[in-house]
Design a protein around this nucleic acid. Structure first.
Length: 428
RNA sequence: GGAGAAGUACCCAAGUGGUGAAGGGGCUCCCCUGCUAAGGGAGUAGGUCGGGUAACCGGCGCAAGGGUUCAAAUCCCUUCUUCUCCGCCA
């Protein structure tokens, strides 16, 4: 959520920021300003009436005590109470309108973020060379099937299209990846959290997924109660809510968390047909990093998150690139985003394995997460998140980039300790 | 899932319709003291919204949201959370 005071004092700045992400905020901003002026006018009226009411309420018991008759004042107050009720209704309607308009505004991109959409994303650097094969390389779907790492058919039998089963060595490889990620994060001083997967609406609201993207998650409805929960689409949704409505101290910042969860996404109407295998599914595994920082430390934290995510991919020895996303490709809540994309040889493209973002105070405003600074003033925290990493793109990259002429796949060295020392996964 | 109890500040806690939401602990400052402990005094309802250049003024706030009333922490309704007991269960 953006600061209403910023919109009030510098609407053109906000409009221009939105344009950078190809979002036309002009009408929304103008509406907000109009409603804000009305709201403040009505607020003034309601509050002076309430002040009058409060004063009278003090007088009535006094009059009674002195044996007087307060019925005159009481009659007047009854009339006033009616007016207050009307104005209050008007006020809450205006507040609600303003709030929902504010929610419709995306975060403002950082100054150095390029305008425009996906086509303006900029690769910053590459790691390693594209692997070359002196044989006809297979794609990850064929490799995973022939090595019995993934059972796509039975996955579909159990849960429909977009679901798969990690089997045998595939499951061990997947689990090894997650263990490797978690151990590296713990070494760096991040606290591991295992969070609920079913969250209440408020969590999605704070993260910025709701109200705009309520259709993109799975909802759980109980047969005997009305309460609804949703399956988290990323552990970020849980982690950025840990300190909702809390006031932290400057000393305890930055707070550094990681969580492992499956991520559940509907991916309704997306481009599944052209993407085979485990590139895109309804459930994938991910370790997520989240930091809460002071505003002046969030750039530093962002660099750290990017570096950490890169470190993991480098450890696996995969060819990847780091890209800086253009404003229009950053998600709704984020001021800046860098993606790490691994090379998938069979597809001839780079696919995201990590997305590192700085939300600045956008999520903290929605979640009311503050800290008391050295001058005892309250400020909103900054929140940042980055995948570290999502396995559903890493595994295809590993099997494709590490495949051998005989159809086997070499296990990256860092994973071997987690797999009982197995060096090569061979066809049986 | 069934029955009951509770939710007031950093913590404990009083408060069943009426002027400033008691009291204690803790914390901060001051006094006393050679130092510590003890003792004495003062401060300590956060936060947010609105107005004002400002010191300041005002609204809201007793888990959340509604209602009754001239007036609600207090009465009524709904929801949430916590605790105890019972049932079920990895």
């Amino acid at each position: 959520m953006l600061d209403i005071k910023l919109i009030r004092s510098n609407p053109d700045f906000v409009k221009a920021a939105a344009k950078k992400r190809e979002f036309d905020a002009d009408a929304i901003v103008d509406d907000i300003l109009k409603i804000d002026a009305q709201r403040r006018e009505v607020t003034g009226r309601v509050e002076s009436m309430k002040a009058e009411q409060n004063a009278a309420s003090k007088k009535i018991p006094q009059i009674k005590k002195e044996g007087g008759d307060p019925s005159q004042i009481m009659a007047e107050m009854k009339e006033l109470a009616g007016k207050i009720k009307e104005c209050d209704a008007e006020l809450s309607e205006l507040e609600e309108k303003q709030h929902s308009l504010l929610l419709g505004l995306p975060n403002m991109p950082d100054e150095d973020v390029c305008a425009g959409g996906k086509e303006n994303n900029k690769p910053l650097h590459y790691y390693k060379e594209q692997p070359k094969f002196d044989f006809e390389p297979k794609n990850h779907v064929d490799l995973c099937e022939s090595l019995h790492l993934i059972d796509y058919q039975r996955g579909a039998k159990l849960a429909g299209a977009g679901s798969w089963i990690y089997t045998g060595m595939g499951a061990r490889l997947e689990w090894a990846l997650l263990n490797y990620f978690i151990d590296e994060h713990i070494k760096d001083g991040y606290q591991l959290m295992l969070v609920p997967h079913m969250l209440n609406y408020e969590c999605g609201y704070v993260a910025g997924q709701f109200p705009k993207f309520t259709d993109e998650v799975y909802w759980i409805q109980n047969p005997t109660s009305n309460d609804k929960k949703f399956l988290l689409p990323t552990a970020e949704t849980a982690l950025v809510n840990l300190h909702r409505d809390e006031i932290l101290t400057e000393d305890e910042l930055p707070k550094k968390y990681i969580a492992y969860t499956p991520c559940y996404r509907r991916e309704a109407g997306s481009y599944r047909s052209e993407e085979r295998g485990m590139i895109r599914g309804h459930q994938f595994n991910k370790v997520e990093m989240v930091q809460y920082t002071t505003p002046d430390k969030s750039d530093e934290a962002f660099d750290e998150l990017v570096r950490k995510a890169e470190h993991l991919v480098q450890g696996l020895g995969l060819h990847y690139r780091l890209s800086k996303l253009a404003a229009g490709d950053c998600s709704f809540s984020m001021a800046r985003t860098y993606d790490i994309e691994v090379w998938i040889p069979s597809m001839g493209i780079y696919k995201e394995v990590s997305s590192a973002s700085n939300a600045r105070d956008y999520q903290a405003r929605r979640g009311n997460v503050k800290f008391r600074d050295k001058d005892k003033k309250l400020q909103f925290c900054h929140t940042l998140n980055a995948s570290g990493l999502a396995t559903s793109r890493v595994m295809p990259a590993i099997v494709e980039q590490y495949q051998n002429a005989d159809g086997s796949v070499t296990v990256p060295e860092v994973l071997r300790p987690y797999m009982g020392g197995i060096e090569v996964i061979k066809p049986e």
